[in-house]
């Protein structure tokens, strides 16, 4: 019997990135470059980069803020 394959995080990431680049290609095709209001709208894939970098920075900032300054025991206010 053929074993059912379980998608790994790595294969899912690759699939998501392929989809993202397809969206970028489609977006580039449909963008009216002459009338784009912002610089980043003229750069293909800029929104992928914005999403990726934004998520990376926010996750890093939240982790550091929590660990270094803000996390307390759940019953902190109850004692």
């Amino acid at each position: 019997m053929k074993k059912k394959s379980v998608p790994t995080a790595r294969s899912t990431t690759v699939q998501v990135l392929i989809a993202a680049f397809l969206f970028a290609a489609a977006g580039f095709y449909f963008t009216d470059h002459a009338h784009a209001e912002n610089l980043w709208q003229k750069i293909p894939g800029s929104y992928i980069l914005l999403g990726f970098a934004g998520a990376y920075l926010l996750m890093g900032a939240a982790k550091q803020l929590g660990k270094r300054f803000l996390y307390r025991e759940p019953d902190y206010y109850e004692d």
């Binding site: 992928i48 980069l49 999403g51 996750m59 803000l70 307390r72």
Partner: peptide
């Protein structure tokens, strides 16, 4: 869609950063 896909890719790579902590946030 690009923005959402870029975010999803970053999350898949670094989701341990967001693993819930049993903690109160000041």
């Amino acid at each position: 869609l690009q923005l959402l896909a870029g975010t999803l890719a970053a999350f898949l790579i670094m989701r341990s950063h967001l693993h819930p902590h049993a903690a109160l946030t000041l």
